[in-house]
């Protein structure tokens, strides 16, 4: 289970550049980063997994907080989270395979969202493991292409404001 840092930044190419530049420059060993939009179109949320055995999450956080484009860093390490990944999977599918693919999709609560002359696109949502597993099952039909959002996450049950607002309150 990775230790998540939820980093809210300004939604711009420049601020993404600054964040990635910093992580690279400081050689901070972080895992694959996913990027989501939020309720505010001006914001982006980055989810950065950190392995505490390799780097102190507090150090990653302290470095990120130096950037002016970073609006908030939340350490979600110990909190209960809802984590969802989404994939679009293009599968080679002659018409005789459609039923079988549809049944498999049903099992994963996935949906077929495009039907082409030789391919289907399957949309699957869930934990990273579930999405992995679904893609693995589809392999035998021939997977042409996969795009994935990477994990999106939210803390369960909290009725507080979103991190950027809380941080602004704290600063005020």
């Amino acid at each position: 289970m990775p230790h998540w840092l939820a980093v809210t930044i300004e939604n711009s190419v420049e601020s993404l550049n600054r964040v990635f530049h910093l992580l690279r420059q400081r050689h901070l060993p972080v895992g694959p980063i996913s990027m989501c939009r939020t309720e505010d179109p001006q914001d982006l949320r980055l989810l950065i997994p950190v392995d505490p055995a390799r780097v102190d999450p507090q150090r990653v956080r302290a470095n990120l907080e130096k950037l002016l484009c970073v609006k908030a860093v939340e350490d979600w390490g110990e909190r209960p989270l809802v984590i969802r990944d989404m994939a679009l999977v293009k599968v080679r599918a002659p018409s005789e395979a459609w039923v079988e693919i549809a049944q498999l999709a049903e099992f994963y609560r996935a949906r077929i969202v495009d039907v082409g002359p030789e391919t289907l696109i399957v949309e699957v949502t869930g934990s990273a493991e579930k999405v992995d597993s679904c893609i693995a099952r589809l392999q035998r039909f021939g997977v042409v292409e996969v795009t994935r959002s990477g994990p999106m996450a939210m803390v369960r049950g909290q009725a507080e404001a979103a991190p950027a607002d809380r941080m602004a309150e704290a600063a005020a």
Binding site: D56, Q58, R59, A62, N63, E65, K66
Partner: peptide, 8 residues
């Protein structure tokens, strides 16, 4: 003064 120096 720099929190990023702690435990670096």
């Amino acid at each position: 003064i720099d929190p990023a120096e702690i435990n670096k």
